[in-house]
Simulated assay, not measured.
Amino acid sequence: MYQEKIINPPSGYLALVLFLGLLATAIFCFVAEMFVFGSIILTLNFLLVMPGLIIVNPNESKVLTLFGQYVGTVKSDGFFWVNPFTSKSKLSLRARNLNGQQLKVNDKMGNPIEIAAVIVWQVKETAKATFAVENYLQYVNIQSEAAVRHLANSFAYDHMEDESAEITLKDGAEKVSVLLEGELNERLSRAGIEVIEARISHLAYAQEIASAMLQRQQATAVIAARRLIVEGAVGMVEMALDKLSQKGIVELDEERKAAMVSNLLVVLCGDRHVQPVVNTGTLYN
């Protein structure tokens, strides 16, 4: 409904020269005691010429409306003259940062987490930003929060919660940022807002489950380390038995092999130093 219309008004310097010329003429009329003509010229000068002068700074724009109708937007920086009866609204085109507040939401697996995002955005279409929404700044804040909540509900925190997940909030930062940016652009396009970049700035488990999740992560790390130790120990025991058999150092029956394997595994897998025991007898007494 609100398509942006960019206009290029005439230079304001010509209007400024006209303003100064009419002002000099009015002064001359007052000096010559032609008060009526001087008053008319002065009134027209301040009602028709001076109100039309506008200054547009770099990365700013002026949205013009005439009697409730959108006329156009001036985006070129400089000094211009426009219809003096138009209403002129300044709108910044500079990039802005939105440092979102920390939100407590549930991830895909139902775990409470804390999440926040940093969003870089700017006004792309001034007509939509001015007329399509009541307050585009408030619109950006609310829709950004809704997008972050929806993103958190769509993915698990990490692979421990969902091992089959291709994308998680913790490990898929780049992909999550791309998805968040796309959803924000879709939500904010109604207000003429373009999202330049969107990234997760804070991600953590909520306080009520943080300690439990930390213990779970520690337990997972211990299990992974133990699994690696056991795999290495089994390989070393197998190598030892093969070497003893190849070189014929000692002949071991099945019972003695089992005892040797047990002792080696205790030595290799234990987390404490073992105390050697000298056996002066035999395995059978």
Rank of each mutant, 00 (worst) to 15 (best):
E254C: 05
Q69C: 03
Y284Q: 09
G100Q: 02
H273Q: 14
P10G: 03
E231R: 06
I7H: 11
D158A: 10
I113Y: 02
Y136T: 01
A219H: 06
E181A: 02
M34F: 13
E114G: 05
V36G: 09
E194F: 08
T168E: 09
S164T: 03
W121Y: 14
Q218A: 13
L203Y: 00
N57T: 05
V230M: 14
I119E: 04
L66P: 02
Q217A: 03
N111A: 15
S164H: 09
D242F: 11
W121S: 05
R187D: 09
Q143M: 07
T282N: 09
G235I: 04
E197Y: 07
R256M: 12
E231Y: 12
L64D: 04
N135L: 06
F85G: 08
V36T: 09
G72M: 01
E134Y: 07
Q102W: 08
L20G: 10
R190T: 13
G232A: 13
I119P: 04
L20S: 12
G232P: 12
K108A: 01
E186T: 15
F28Q: 10
E238P: 06
I193Q: 03
G110P: 04
Q138S: 13
K175R: 13
E254D: 15
G12P: 07
R190W: 03
A165E: 05
L184M: 14
Y284L: 13
I196N: 11
G68A: 09
V82W: 01
S211Q: 11
Q3S: 14
V118E: 07
A210Y: 10
E181S: 03
G235T: 02
R256I: 10
L228V: 01
Q122C: 07
G72A: 04
L91E: 12
E134K: 12
K5M: 12
Q69R: 11
A156F: 04
Q69M: 06
A233E: 07
E166C: 07
G100W: 00
V148E: 09
L244D: 00
L23T: 05
L66M: 03
L188A: 00
S262L: 04
I6Y: 08
L20M: 15
V274G: 08
R256Y: 10
R190H: 12
I193K: 00
E4S: 05
A156H: 07
L23E: 09
R227Y: 10
T130W: 10
A95R: 05
E145W: 03
E231F: 04
I119M: 03
A15Q: 02
E186S: 15
A146T: 02
S87N: 14
V237A: 08
A198Q: 03
T280Y: 13
S92H: 06
D253I: 06
N263W: 10
A165W: 02
E161Y: 08
W81F: 12
G248N: 02
A258F: 05
I7E: 04
V82Q: 00
A240D: 10
H150V: 01
I249E: 07
F37A: 06
L16R: 04
L64M: 08
F28D: 09
Y284E: 13
V148M: 12
L252D: 00
N57M: 08
I27D: 08
S92D: 14
V133G: 02
L64V: 09
